[in-house]
Each structure stands twice: as structure tokens, then as C-alpha cells.
Write a protein that binds this DNA or RNA. Structure first.
Lengths: 337, 337
DNA sequence: TTGAAAGCGCTAACAT
DNA sequence: ATGTTAGCGCTTTCAA
């Protein structure tokens, strides 16, 4: 004879327990003043009634959702997944829930997403990247909540920033290659314009090569970001065809770098003897493939953790919080000599 | 002279525009009856005031959040990320927002998560796996919202199901190996008990081997799930040490299979000539490494898409919705003869 | 096509 | 330690 009935509310528990709804409310907060017996009676009644706390009502009344909105280019990228993981870990301690959205590496989509996420009244918003549509930027500025831009150093920060310079980091790798004696160095990346981090890395490559007085024409555009292993392999094939005397290649990510490596393996080109390969991101693949890949560890998880810690400080009202500059680390492995 | 002021509400827009709050509310719904001029005036006023629609209030009043709660074992797994991606894609068309939680392959954590997510009053909940703590199960049963279990065929479904039999699928691979002439076949998986999908696959392996009258002792436990590439490599090293005459090995995932492959490469063991390797999950790595990996495509993204479609049907009030049985596909590649 | 009244379920603010 | 009152911002419901 089960019948559809409305889920129990605090008022129902109050009635059963013989207290006021306010007391029931207090029983569910850890810090409030309430006698032990009253709380226990209330919690037991709640369990018996199958009560489920209603956050939507609580959120509205207290003007506090404990949501943190986060936009990332794509879930299917171990680096961004790690950042979200680190952030999630840190925020879980404060019982905050992440509201995740995927921009698909598209600023217009990001704008749409920001607008949608802000309607949920998050306590803070974390975006990947420092470039936005004008309207997206305005939405962030007018949101009146902490804004954190991650990964890319923004030209004009909106709020706080946790990340590093993508250009600078590739410059470091070029320097390493040059020190190792390579001069005919190529770059495999995505098509210009879409992925800002990828573009920044390409710019870093160009600047560094110019600084060393080296030829900057060996640029292979592997398609719209994100660049897959397969696209890295295809790009390597084109590189070999177009610039057969290339000595070293820097890839926009470890995934494309690994793809490039497999292309060499299929063609019997030895790495690093005939061509050296560098990647980006310190994906697990690069630490275990044969040969292992020289890469840059951008410390994706750390970016997430530090973002979470910064957020907690801000929400705790700390005033002296600044930006966090992450220091990526060059990891030299077997794919370069 | 900027001062902190409360964000504008519909009442503010109503005042400015000279209409009632109800009319403002109507202006934001696409389907409601309202004159074109009134709506335009309202939307313009809203833009000027920098109004942001408040979902929390809307949710409370209409008892409808447009949230779908989703639990997955880990974000950092391309298969689950694909499932969430497919689901997200499908639900975006209905403007539903996913509330994601990570169980870390732990049923107790799943229970905690389910409870937390239900407080947000989602319209539906999607869980990965068909095994839960007794209390977790009860929470799902009493939630009075559609429940979809994915990936594992549950022994006793709570609501709906979208997935396949993990055991059955590994059985298929064993059959394939046996047909190809292999008899001394090993299995590399995670420690028993934690990851239900991994355990199911191991069971499938054992059953199939027994059915063929073959030795089932070649089981390597590679550690607590999820099994990394590195752990796959270590497991392969142990397999070679403990059972040097092994002809073929089935790994619980492509990642561990790839790790195993690299271990063979480092030792100069040729694949598939000296040992054949099979994986699971159709990760990109298996389609591009040298040699490419025989695997099973579980159609992770399709699981997400079908889950989303099922959900939309249910929320649209369709009564004739059933379960969705996904048909994983064996992909034979170079790592087996 | 528009408006008025009421209330979703909780909690801030104040009182006892 | 507990209760009362009011109201968060929207939308359901009914009326015009």
C-alpha cells in the first residue's frame, strides 16, 4: 500500500520530536549550541523518517551554496583531470562541491558556460586560462565572487592566478636542446588561435629559437586542439617528409610526443640518436615508454591543490592572499641526448 | 565610489520596467505567454542591471534542480571520463548540470558521496557499478528519483542499468586466445575485492579458463586499483619470473597492458612472438603503440550517451524504458597472433 | 497578456 | 539551550 508522499522536512521531524524546526536545524550543524540528548533524538527521528537534508532551501536562505564553479577545456586530459582532482581533494575537506563545465577549448563555449554556472550561485569560480571573450570577462568581473585563473599567466588578471608561463617553460626546453647541441629544432603543436596554452608554447618556441639565432620555420600544425597521439604521429610523418634533416622536435604535449615517437619506431628511425623528442605535461606514458620522454612537469595536481588552498584562505576572509606562481620542472629522459 | 550592493533581483527589474515580478519571471522562460515588447524591455533592463538569474531560488520554489548526480571511481581514467563526457553532451541539450563525485574505487566513500549528492536534490542519480554498501543501496532506493547503474551488470538492479557483463567480455577474450592456440594464459589485475569491475573480469578469466580445462594459477595481483602502466610493468616482471613459460597474458586494462608491453621491450622479449598481450578499454595508447594492442572496446562514451538518452526519456515521463545492454567489441591487433 | 498572493524548506536575527 | 518571526528570490496558482 505504498503511496507517493512528499519527502519529510525539518518541520516533520520537529513535530515527531516535539521541538521547534529551528532546533532541528541546529541538530544538523556540528558547531551549534544544542544539548546532546535533543540532538540525538532528532538525528534518530531523521534516520527513521528517511529524512534527507535539503540543500536547495538552505542555500537560498543562507545565501551560500558551497559550490565552486570550474571550467576546464576537456575532461579527457590527464593534466586537467589532475588539476580538478587536486582541487576536489582540497575542497572536500570543506564540504564544497565542484560544479564542472567543459569549454572544449572554445572561448565562446566558455562564455556560455560561465553564464550558466554563475546562475547556480557558486562561492567562487575557477577558470582554466587567462583569455576570455569580452562578455565572459565582464561576467567574471561582475560576479562579486573570487575568480581564479589557472594554468596560463593572464595578461590582465581578473582576480587571482595560479599557474605559470607556458611560453617561458618551452623556452627552457629550447635552451636545453641548444645546450645539448641541437640546432635544427622543430615544433609540433595545434592549429593557432584556439588553444591558448598551446599557442603560448609555440610563441615560447619561436622566441627562444630567435634568441639563439636559429631557424624557426620547422612548425607543424597538427590540427585543432587537443592533439591526440595519432595526430602527433601524423605530424611527425609530415615533419620527416618536409624537413628530413631535423635533429630534434618539441611537441605540445606528451601525448603528441609519444605519437611522434611511435612514428619513428614504425619507420626505424632511432630516438634519440637520429631525432630527439621533447614533450610536455609529465603524463605517465612518458615515464614508461621506450625510450622514456624528456618532458616538462607542469605540476597539474599541485595547481589544483594550491588553487583550493587559495580559495579556502579567501573564503576564510584572509586579505593577504596573492597569486601562486607554479614552477614547472624540466625532466630530462631518454628521448634526448 | 563603488560600494558593495546586493545583486539585482527580478523585483528590481520589475520596478525598473514597471511590470510585476511574475512578468519578469515569464520573460526568462522561452515558452511562456508574454508580449514581445514586454519581454524585450525586461531582458534589456536585466542586461543593464547586470542581472544574473538565481537558480537556487528557482530550484526551491519549483522543486526542480536540473542536476544529475554522477559517481565515478576516478576522474583520471579515460574510460570513465568518456562516459561522463557522453552523458554531459547528451544532458547539455536539456540544460542539465552534472554533479560529479569520485568514489576512489571505495564503496564506503561511494556511500558518503551518495548521501552528500542527494542533499542537492538531483533529478536523477547515475552510479558506476552495481555493488554498494547496504546503506548506500537504501539511500538510492529511498531517493525517489531515477537511479541508473552503469558499467557492471548489477546482481539486483535498483532502477535502470546501462552496461555489460565484465566477466562475459573477458571470457570472450580467453576464447579468442584459446582459438588462436594459446593454452598457458595469465591474468594481470588489481587486488581482489576493491574494484568490482576488475574482480568481475578476473572471475570471467577464471571461469573461461576452467571451461577450457586450462590451468588457472597464473594470476598476478598488481596492487590496489586502479592499476597504472608502471604497475602493469611490474606485474609483467613478476609473471616472467614466476611463470616463464607463459604464452599469453590478459590485462585488466590497456594501461596495464601497455606497461606490460614496455617491460617486454626492455627485456628484449618480442610481442606477440614470445608472449601475447591483451588489454581492456580501447584506450588510444593501444591503437598506436608498437605493436598495437588487442583489446576490448567497452564503448565508454556510448554508455554515457545511452545513459543520458535513457534519463531524458524517463524525465519526459516515458514508461516503456528498459535497460540498455551495451555490446563491447573485441578488437584483435598486433599484440596477439 | 498580466498581476496578486502565497509559499517552497530552511535559517538569520532576535528573544527568552 | 530553545523558540518565534520573518524572509531568502523565485514560481505555482488563481484571478482578471
Amino acid at each position: 500500500m505504498s503511496q507517493i508522499r512528499k519527502p519529510p522536512t525539518m518541520a516533520d521531524i520537529a513535530r515527531v520530536t516535539g521541538v521547534s524546526p529551528m532546533t532541528v536545524s541546529r541538530a544538523f550543524k556540528t558547531d551549534s549550541l544544542i544539548s546532546k540528548e535533543t540532538r540525538e533524538a532528532i538525528l534518530q527521528a531523521a534516520e527513521e523518517l528517511g529524512y534527507v537534508f535539503d540543500s536547495t532551501a538552505s542555500n537560498l536562505r543562507s545565501q551560500k551554496t558551497d559550490f565552486v564553479a570550474v571550467t576546464i577545456p576537456s575532461l579527457n586530459n590527464a593534466n586537467f583531470a589532475d588539476t580538478v582532482g587536486g582541487l576536489s581533494e582540497t575542497l572536500a575537506a570543506r564540504n564544497m562541491q565542484i560544479l564542472l563545465g567543459y569549454t572544449n577549448y572554445d572561448m565562446a563555449e566558455e562564455e556560455r558556460l560561465i553564464e550558466q554556472l554563475l546562475r547556480r550561485k557558486p562561492q567562487a569560480i575557477v577558470v582554466t586560462g587567462g583569455k576570455h571573450t569580452p562578455r565572459g570577462r565582464k561576467l567574471l568581473e561582475n560576479a562579486h565572487i573570487p575568480v581564479i585563473e589557472t594554468w596560463d599567466a593572464p595578461a590582465e588578471p581578473i582576480g587571482h592566478f595560479v599557474g605559470f608561463s607556458n611560453a617561458g617553460v618551452v623556452r627552457e626546453m629550447v635552451d636545453h636542446f641548444v645546450r645539448a647541441g641541437y640546432t635544427r629544432i622543430a615544433f609540433i603543436g595545434g592549429d593557432a588561435g584556439r588553444d591558448t596554452r598551446g599557442s603560448d608554447r609555440r610563441h615560447g618556441f619561436l622566441e627562444a629559437m630567435k634568441a639563439h639565432g636559429l631557424d624557426t620555420s620547422r612548425l607543424i600544425a597538427a590540427g585543432p586542439p587537443p592533439i591526440s597521439m595519432r595526430e602527433g604521429a601524423n605530424a611527425m610523418a609530415r615533419l620527416i617528409a618536409d624537413y628530413p634533416d631535423t635533429e630534434a622536435v618539441i611537441c605540445v604535449s606528451d601525448l603528441s610526443a609519444y605519437g611522434a615517437l611511435t612514428e619513428c619506431q614504425r619507420r626505424g628511425i632511432s630516438v634519440p640518436e637520429q631525432i630527439a623528442i621533447g614533450g610536455f605535461g609529465a603524463y605517465e606514458i612518458g615515464s614508461i615508454c621506450v625510450p622514456t620522454l624528456t618532458t616538462i612537469d607542469a605540476q597539474a595536481r599541485e595547481i589544483g591543490r594550491r588553487t583550493g588552498a587559495l580559495l579556502i584562505d579567501i573564503l576564510n576572509g584572509r586579505e593577504d592572499v596573492g597569486d601562486v606562481l607554479i614552477k614547472p620542472e624540466l625532466i630530462v629522459r631518454e628521448s634526448t641526448r
